[in-house]
Every structure is written in structure tokens, then in C-alpha cells.
Write a protein that binds this DNA or RNA. Structure first.
Lengths: 240, 240
DNA sequence: TAGTGGTCTAGACCACAGC
DNA sequence: CTGTGGTCTAGACCACTAG
């Protein structure tokens, strides 16, 4: 006995056994799941193990625990979901299309007073890039990016004609916090032109700021033709 | 000794103490955090407690654990973020604007073969609603909704002129799984009219499907004027 | 007040990956 | 082979709350 998890830890098995009827709906919200002491006898385990199993369900939002009362199936709340933000290249190749990347412009400049870059906080000289991603022959997105060279000095020497800034940054600039804003916009003339659209065509815009240790690392504004791209968000309580 | 967590559990304190230098960036990705046995002596606790502290950081994605090697600060991966999906009313009142709701149409019909409702799976008679949410005097969103009466029979008797379907469903129809799609669209004439726009104005569209026990509960398609609404998504590793 | 979950311990064996 | 994390136990005291 004791640790002998050939396949699956016991606490994991208990947790799965409890999660199944919850996810299937067999145990409705408010249903009282077995007490820990019941689990200890049912599974012939210590209470620490039973506790770990139920705790993990609570952490996943599947159950709510109340002292003296027991643990109860939680009502899913609609307030959040996990948004998948795939890498541009894998998103495109995942659809079976060929991926191509093109640098449109690059320049170094001093920090300005735009609201978007101001969210990065104090910043040094900035590398400003404009590039385009293709899915097959069709433009898939235009990406406008600002890199804070004070936070990522190495970026100044990189040739972003050869690789997308997102890929390089992912490998070379760790961040600790990120924020995204998702909106629908009518592209301005320059953007519409780069995407092969008119400004009457709705576009999906994703803005992303990343910080490290409170200092802004980079800001990206990606614009997708509305007909070409959907963001997917899922919420399955307790993906564990 | 033993359980005496007046304020904060010891494992929580250890976890916080470790998370601080990670989040601040003082400990960079790849940095080896203290071994469990070091924590047991530093905090005068058992290994189970130290383990629980570090485990929670691993669950939050802040650290990666490797046998025989130790636990290391993880590199944040960009692939997902938490999307906040606020309730329509609280979203509007949260901006200091008054909220108003209006039912445009309601009818019961047999299931059809549309792709969106087909995602709900097998379904009985459907309640089809069309309604409008206002922020102050301005239309904020049009919501087109399908409710599977086989899954939520009570909905047939509800007066949705008085309350938005989302609010009623939240209270009366639990779900176990949800999926969202976010896109940018040009509204058709009817939609543009309801929103006080033209079809040249980009709109943000959120589609949401919810299921319970594998059976489709409801489908909602919300359309927002692009200039009026942004979705926000955050990723801060280990919000614990 | 009784009983649930919350937390902790001191020890143990095991699996596995570095060395 | 060594040492780390992974897991487990048998017991304990405490905090909170439902009744």
C-alpha cells in the first residue's frame, strides 16, 4: 500500500469518479456529494487522500465545500471562459493552408503618447513593426507591433524580415502578465488595402499587451478579416 | 503546531512567498526554486505542507516540477487567457449607464437544420427569441436565442417580455459545458436597423452554446456595435 | 453542540530522471 | 546510484456552522 500509483493516483481516481456524474448532469447543482469519511471507507484510503480528491474538484469549480454541511455540486457560472489564442503559424497550418509571413515596415522611434503604448508604462526607445501573415495566397492578418527596447534590448539586432516578432519574442522575452482586448473594427484605408478589403468589411481586432516585472514588453495589434477568423472560447468546469 | 491557521494556512503563506519573486520577475523562467526539504526546514513544517505549497504553484502554471531535478519557474505560454463574459445588465450598469431590455419577438417552432442549432445536438421543439439590450438610450446588443424546450420545458411558460432569457436561464437551467465563438461581422439589414447602424458598420458577434449532460440547452447569438464593446481577456499565471 | 471540512505531522515507499 | 518529487497513512487539533 502507500504510494503505488501504477497507473493513476488514487486521489485522481476518486476525483474522476466524482467528476463523472457531475459533468454528466446525473448529480445536479446542489447535490451533496459523499462526505470525506464516506470516501475513506469506500476507497479504503486515509482522509488526506479523500480530501485531496474533493479539494481538486473544488479548485476546478465543480463543487463547493461548506463546513459542517458537506460538499455540493456547484452551479456553473457563466462569467469566464478559456480563450484559446493560438500562434498565427500553427493556426494557419492547422487548417491545412500554407503559411507565409512578410515584414512591411520596421523603424525605431522614441516613445510617443498614444494611449495604447502608454499602457505599457515607462518605456525606452521603441521598435515599431508592421507585418502581414498569409494563409495560402490570401492575407490572413496584419500585425502592428511595438517592442520596448528598454525591456528587450536584444530585439534591436534581430532581422524580423525572416521571422515573425511573436515567434522571436516567445522564445526570448518572458512575460509575467498579459492583457487582451477583442473588438470589431472597420479597417482604415491602409489596413483595408493590406488585407485586400474595403473599409466597409468588418474586421476582428485583437490587441495584446505583455509585461514583465511591471514593465511593458510589447504591444501587438492584430487585425483579421471578419470572414476569415473566429476566436474560440470554451468553459468546461474542471478540466482538471 | 498542527492545524492553527488563524489567518492564513501555512501552505498558503509558503506558496505566496514563492509566488512573489516569480511574478515580479526576480526569479526568471528556469530558476530553480527551493527544494521541498529546504522549505520544511525553513518553515519548520512537514514535507506534506511544503509539497502542497509547491503543488499549488505547479497547478497554477507558475512552476514546473521535475523529479530528481527540482521545481523551476515556468515560462508563461501565450496559448490561453481567461475571457471575461459579464452579464449584459451588469456590464452596462457597471459603466454607469442605465439598462433596459426589450423583447422583439418570440415563437415556438420545430427544430430546423441550421448549422448553429444543429450543434446543440438532438432537440425537441424550440423557443426562438429575439431581443434587444439598451445602454441608456442607445441599442447595446441584439440577442437572438434558441432554447431547447426538450431540455428546459419550464421555459415555455415564461414571459420573456419581463426578463432577459439569459437571466432566467442562469437561474433555472444549469449547464455543464459551454462553447463560445467570437467574430466580426457586417450586420444584415434587419440587425443593422435594430442597432441603429448600417451594414457597413463592423459588429462584434458572440455565439454561445451550452449543454447539459450532452444535450443542448440553449444557443445565443449576440451582436454588438463594434464601437461600443470590447471583450477583455487576461492571463496572469497563477491567480491561485 | 456535534460533525464537517481545513490543516498539519512524522513517517514511509515508490517512480523516475539526473549524475 | 542518488535524490527529487509523487503519493499515501494514521492520527491529530482546530474553525466554523448548521441545527
Amino acid at each position: 500500500m502507500s504510494a503505488a500509483p501504477n497507473q493513476r493516483a488514487l486521489h485522481q481516481r476518486i476525483s474522476d469518479d466524482l467528476a463523472t456524474p457531475i459533468r454528466s448532469g446525473a448529480w445536479p447543482p446542489g447535490f451533496r456529494i459523499p462526505f470525506e469519511h464516506e470516501l475513506t471507507s469506500r476507497y479504503a484510503c486515509s482522509r488526506a487522500t479523500a480530501n485531496k480528491a474533493v479539494q481538486s474538484l473544488a479548485a476546478a469549480g465543480l463543487v463547493e465545500r461548506r463546513r459542517r454541511a458537506g460538499s455540493f455540486v456547484a452551479r456553473p457560472r457563466i462569467q469566464s471562459a478559456v480563450l484559446e489564442i493560438p500562434d498565427m503559424e500553427s493556426e494557419i497550418t492547422g487548417r491545412g493552408q500554407s503559411y507565409r509571413y512578410e515584414l512591411l515596415s520596421a523603424r525605431t522611434r522614441r516613445p510617443g503618447d498614444g494611449a495604447e503604448e502608454a499602457m505599457l508604462g515607462p518605456r525606452g526607445p521603441l521598435l515599431e513593426l508592421r507585418c502581414r501573415h498569409f494563409a495560402g495566397e490570401a492575407p490572413f492578418a496584419v500585425e502592428e507591433r511595438i517592442i520596448n527596447l528598454a525591456a528587450v534590448p536584444d530585439a534591436a539586432a534581430v532581422d524580423f524580415g525572416g521571422q515573425p516578432p511573436g515567434a522571436w519574442l516567445l522564445a526570448h522575452a518572458a512575460w509575467t502578465e498579459a492583457r487582451h482586448e477583442i473588438s470589431a473594427v472597420n479597417p482604415d484605408r491602409s489596413l483595408a488595402n493590406a488585407l485586400g478589403l474595403t473599409s466597409a468589411n468588418a474586421c476582428l481586432r485583437v490587441k495584446r499587451w505583455t509585461w514583465r516585472a511591471g514593465a511593458g514588453v510589447t504591444f501587438a495589434r492584430q487585425t483579421f478579416p471578419g470572414h476569415a477568423y473566429d476566436l474560440i472560447a470554451r468553459f468546461t468546469p474542471g478540466s482538471s
